[in-house]
């Protein structure tokens, strides 16, 4: 019998495969394809205090082995998420991790407070890394002190496990990781998207309405694996690895680099069944390699 179960920040997962925030809505769309209870966890769309309209289209630009997006955190606001989305998603036997984003420390604190004690919510993922909104998001994720302040604020307002989602758009990812660990983060998600740009050479205009956007998909995977490896050496808290995972092989690479769990993001667009294929593929690979427990892979990369 092979064990696929892992525990991250006190959240028990039946397998290490989650769906990444912003690529999976609140689960409704993909529930038409499979039973969401099969997933390790669902990380829902970035939620803000007030409803957000998001950026005008075009919001998507395809790039080699990936895509740029500038959605701009379109979401119905935390109260609607608590009233409409969480109760619906709670029908499934799957931990719900709510991704939250704010303009200010106070906003992060207020959203965390409102989500505290909401039935079905297993943890909060703190987005200090969204490149597509002017305030909040990325600004908080590029300065160790500011990142620590956000984490301290939400820790103070919430009893839920707190996962800091970090931006790769920094010089030294380990500095930010250490700062959020010291501030009390229970786990770290990485990476969010890499800031990028695409230009339509016929019109000479940027493809995206927001000029720049976040790059995701297989194109960013080597950067993500490297950052997971660096951060795993620098902190003691667990890491949820993400960035271009579409197959079990991709996921195993992240586990070996030091991630305790992984999330499928843009891979959901590539194949709506990708998370299930990753779960089944990890299991098959463990069987083939005669490894009894998926946890044996975590951080098992061999560096001579």
């Amino acid at each position: 019998m092979i064990n696929l179960a892992v525990e991250v920040a006190g959240i028990k997962l039946k397998n290490p495969v989650m769906t990444a925030s912003g690529t999976f809505g609140f689960g409704r769309e993909y529930s038409k394809f499979y039973d969401l209870s099969l997933l390790g966890a669902v990380m829902v769309k970035g939620t803000t205090l007030e409803p957000r309209l998001g950026n005008p289209p075009p919001r998507i630009a395809e790039t080699p082995a990936g895509l740029l997006n500038c959605i701009g955190l379109q979401n119905p606001g935390v109260d609607a998420v608590i009233k409409e989305e969480i109760p619906w998603l709670s029908q499934y036997d799957v931990p719900i991790i709510v991704n939250i984003s704010g303009h200010s420390l106070e906003e992060y604190g207020e959203i965390a407070l409102r989500l505290d004690g909401v039935p079905g919510v297993a943890g909060l993922e703190i987005n200090i890394s969204c490149p597509n909104v002017k305030h909040g998001g990325l600004a908080f994720g590029t300065e160790p002190q500011m990142a620590a302040d956000v984490i301290r604020t939400v820790k103070d307002k919430s009893r839920l496990p707190i996962i800091a989602k970090l931006s790769p758009n920094v010089t030294d990812i380990t500095e930010i990781a250490k700062a959020v660990e010291t501030a009390g983060a229970d786990a770290i998600s990485l990476i969010n998207t890499l800031l990028g740009m695409a230009i339509d050479i016929k019109t000479r205009r940027p493809v995206l309405s927001n000029i720049v956007g976040g790059l995701s998909g297989p194109a960013v995977k080597p950067v993500a694996v490297r950052m997971v490896w660096q951060v795993a050496k620098a902190v003691k808290i667990p890491i949820i690895g993400m960035g271009g995972i579409v197959s079990a092989e991709d996921a195993i690479e992240f586990l070996l680099a030091g991630a305790s769990a992984v999330a499928v993001g843009a891979g959901n667009f590539y194949d709506p069944l990708a998370p299930l294929k990753v779960i089944e593929g990890i299991k098959a690979w463990l069987e083939q390699e005669k490894i009894a427990d998926v946890r044996e892979l975590i951080g098992a990369v061999k560096i001579c």
């Binding site: 690529t23 999976f24 997006n69 379109q74 667009f269 709506p272």
Partner: peptide
């Protein structure tokens, strides 16, 4: 027609501007 990411409604990549029932603009 719009550029699409997921095609199923999850990614919010392909939006158009509409007037909601209450009269406000939304995507």
């Amino acid at each position: 027609e719009e550029r699409m990411g997921c095609g199923v409604g999850a990614c919010l990549g392909c939006v158009c501007k509409v007037r909601s029932e209450e009269g406000s603009l939304t995507y």
